[in-house]
Nucleic acid binder design. Sequence first.
DNA 1: CCGAATAGTTGAAAATGTCAATAGTTCTAT
DNA 2: ATAGAACTATTGACATTTTCAACTATTCGG
Lengths: 156, 156
Amino acid sequence: MTQPSTTEIPPPEGLERLLGSPLVTEIEFLTARARALGSAKANALLAPLDLKIRSYAVLSLACSGAAPSQRELAEFLLLDPSQIVALVDGLEQRGLVKRETDPQDRRSKVIKGTAKGRRLLAQAAAATQQAEDQAMGNLSPTERAQLRDLLRRIAF
Amino acid sequence: MTQPSTTEIPPPEGLERLLGSPLVTEIEFLTARARALGSAKANALLAPLDLKIRSYAVLSLACSGAAPSQRELAEFLLLDPSQIVALVDGLEQRGLVKRETDPQDRRSKVIKGTAKGRRLLAQAAAATQQAEDQAMGNLSPTERAQLRDLLRRIAF
DNA sequence: CCGAATAGTTGAAAATGTCAATAGTTCTAT
DNA sequence: ATAGAACTATTGACATTTTCAACTATTCGG
């Protein structure tokens, strides 16, 4: 005796009921969900290159020409300094980045991408670009630009 | 020439240099950073109520009237079902929600907020609202609405 | 020069995420 | 009607991530 058995339309997802919840109006929830979906996709596309979002971000900044110190990476990526150590260790062992002690301040080490690192970054950037395209398939280029700008203003 | 070092101007944060990095144009990175900042703030404001973002989300959905099953919560919050068990356990032990086996399908358990749960939710919602206000202080009400809509479209 | 502060590193503990196995229930196809 | 497939919640193991407290080397301020 199931009520919606005979001629009722089965909901494709069944979660429409929850979409009306007040939670869905909260930016915090929406960013968390968008991030979870996006990073899952990006990680999947980066996996063939033996990178994750984290290591990709470090590699990208290392190759950007900005020559960030590990402390700067930690602050920028909102990670604990000890995590940066692990990430840079991994990339350095693969010959993708190198540590250089800053002559100005010999406590700090500047992270620079190697030629090999830049080559891998090119592929990785293509992968994340693809992930972004998939994630934002619903949005027009204008809307994507809008979203980028709005996010940038709450992310810094 | 990327060296504007006319005089030694110590930057207030020092991270401006990294803001020009290509990484900053990637939505994935921006949502991750926005989410990290936002959830840190929200968690801090929820801490006095002995809630975290996760438990708050479950409580909110439980009290929404939608009477979600645990499987639905898992899918909606993009969490493993086993994590839902733990979250609901915690809330149930505090008398904030209750489990009811669905008469329609006795495998599934429907989560409903109690009166006590709704009272706490009211305070918690105020806290997250405050967190959101702080996080989006830079944005006008119109921009906030825009951001919400754009996020909603990539989050589902 | 000396003490305070900082950058990187190490290691441990706590929190999260992931996954496989299980019991009870429902569904599907004979 | 029933056997087998599929699904829900649950448990427990295991990996990953997060968080934090030391410790060394170096720089900074007085």
